[in-house]
């Protein structure tokens, strides 16, 4: 296997690494890039636990090879807010108990954030549909949707005031 030099941006910071072609983006993030917030749930692209944003779009980091993302920008849940702070969506998950065991939470937050950025007025059923590929085994999704809607509404209020 020939090694590849790659350079990418993770949460706005440059990361360079020498990788084997069969290293997944997930493994790269969890080792070279220190991103332990990215979790492996199934390895099949089904559960959504390993979701990260690649150039702003949600992808399965378990099914993406690190060599494929050379020159691209990756956002993990830690990239949502400045170090030591919580993004309002994270605050909403906290307030509405959208997280129990927390293992699905990073992927859930990123998918919700991406979707609401594209569809700021998405209703509850559209949000439910957008999350269909992010499994949660603890909450039954109700409080997750409560949290996302609360964030959406708060954001809209802010933009109305603006």
């Amino acid at each position: 296997m020939s090694k590849h030099e790659i350079a990418l941006e993770v949460n706005g910071r440059p990361v360079s690494a020498t990788v084997d072609p069969n290293m997944s983006l997930l493994e790269l993030l969890r080792t070279e890039a220190g991103g332990l917030e990215v979790k492996l749930g199934c390895g099949e692209g089904v559960c959504g636990t390993c979701t990260v944003l690649l150039d702003g779009e949600p992808v399965n980091s378990c099914l993406t090879f690190a060599v494929q993302v050379d020159g691209r920008a990756v956002t993990t849940v830690r990239g949502l807010a400045a170090e030591g702070e919580l993004h309002p969506l994270q605050e909403a998950f906290l307030t509405h108990a959208g997280s129990q065991c927390g293992f699905c939470t990073p992927g859930m937050l990123l998918t919700a954030k991406w979707y609401l950025d594209r569809h700021p007025r998405a209703d509850r059923e559209e949000l439910r549909s957008a999350l269909s590929g992010n499994f949660c085994r603890c909450t039954g999704y109700t409080k997750i949707l409560d949290a996302i809607e609360a964030y959406r509404d708060a954001r809209q209020e802010v933009s109305v005031v603006d």
Partner: peptide
């Protein structure tokens, strides 16, 4: 633990 979970920093 809930704060760490939403932040993504809880070590599993």
């Amino acid at each position: 633990d809930f704060v760490e979970k939403v932040a993504g920093t809880l070590p599993y």
